[in-house]
Design a protein around this nucleic acid. Structure first.
Lengths: 207, 207
DNA sequence: CTCGCCGGTGAGCAAGCGCTTAGTGCTTGA
DNA sequence: TCAAGCACTAAGCGCTTGCTCACCGGCGAG
């Protein structure tokens, strides 16, 4: 079976953000937002983590909210890329669902700081920015729903409520960002494998 | 099959909080924290929603953090009560797991404002208060893990990784508080039934 | 060498924050 | 009837916040 393990979005994070000072500030912000949340993080804290003065932030970003928006947009794009890359491999719906779930979970575990900001700080975005991000989330939803639909069609899956099950599968993956801890016993690979198995059992038709 | 539908924690919310002014403030705080998060909520906002002056808050609570702690503690106790009440019914591990999941999910959906604060604002608590709350969460974990263990022992369940699956089941239930929306199409009962079914399929041994 | 440009800084402003305090009116028991 | 005690308010204190602005050093072009 082919793998999407080395898909985009897992290596060289944030290298598309330039110049270097802007990237350093953004990386510092991801760390701070993930640890304490957007509203509990001060611009002074972000600048301090990046080793710069508070005013430096405003050379590269108009507001603190714009910084969150950049993180959220790039993060969502990466996550969607990982998910649809995995869903697009050749294979049966079961194989594709397993690949999609394990890759998506691996991303949420391996990059749990980014994922936490991306998934749990949506409310802090302006209405306009949030609307844009929600559209990206709808696309993730569509990817999973389509695999389930195909599996039901082929008879591989037995899923009475496709939209509800789609929601549950994505919810399960996303929540990894909340509890996953680098100090914990499990590696991202292990969690991805466990979750792929659990999800397959949720949808597979019994013989 | 017996039901835990009318278990504690779903009716007459917060009626243990007295006097009335303290309860009104607490209910207002739950609403505000759920909508905007703890750090984005001001004491003026809470007092305003309760129809009182900002200073009134400090007659009933020492700090804003103490208010969060009260919400978090009572909420966790209610959630644990719902979960272990459902897990304690007579029946096979499958029946008990289904009841536990559907009740727990129903609580997270039906009282999603409280659940959101309880589940997603833990970081805002002081170290001391958080330690106390984490202990309550460990007990929820133990309830689910014990059902899984018994099901494996009886041969009803096939669960290679009991701790990991426990985590996944609880994570699935908890995340309901994040996405559940009163305007949505599903009722708490429907989501509870769907999730109980999905979880049973995750753990049931194939014949 | 000098000048202009530009990423970066130090100091600080206006606003809003959590919380306090002096005072007010209502209730209550002798 | 009235003093004490109570829940509550108006005003505001000290501080931190997001953000601004006058200024500065280094560097490439003429």
């Amino acid at each position: 079976m082919s793998t999407a393990k080395d898909m985009a979005g897992e290596d060289m994070p944030w290298d598309e953000v330039t110049p270097e000072a802007a990237r350093k500030l953004l990386v510092a912000a991801v760390e701070a937002f993930a640890e304490q949340g957007y509203h509990a993080t001060t611009t002074r804290d972000i600048a301090g983590r990046a080793g710069m003065s508070p005013a430096a932030l405003y050379i590269h970003y108009k507001t603190k909210e714009e910084l969150l928006h950049r993180i959220s947009r790039i993060g969502h794009e990466k996550a969607l890329e990982v998910l649809s890359g995995a869903a697009g491999i050749e294979g049966t719906p079961s194989e594709r669902l397993a690949e999609a779930v394990s890759s998506f979970v691996r991303w949420h575990a391996g990059r749990h700081n980014t994922a936490r900001v991306v998934q749990y700080e949506l409310d802090a975005l302006s209405d306009e920015h949030r609307t844009e991000i929600v559209e990206l989330r709808r696309r993730s939803d569509a990817v999973v729903r389509e695999i389930l639909r195909e599996g039901v069609e082929s008879g591989e899956f037995d899923v009475p409520d496709v939209p509800g099950t789609t929601l549950a599968v994505l919810s399960l993956c996303i929540d990894v960002a909340r509890w996953f801890n680098t100090q914990g016993r499990r590696t991202p690979d292990e969690v991805g494998a466990l979750y792929a198995d659990l999800v397959l059992r949720m949808v597979t038709a019994q013989k």
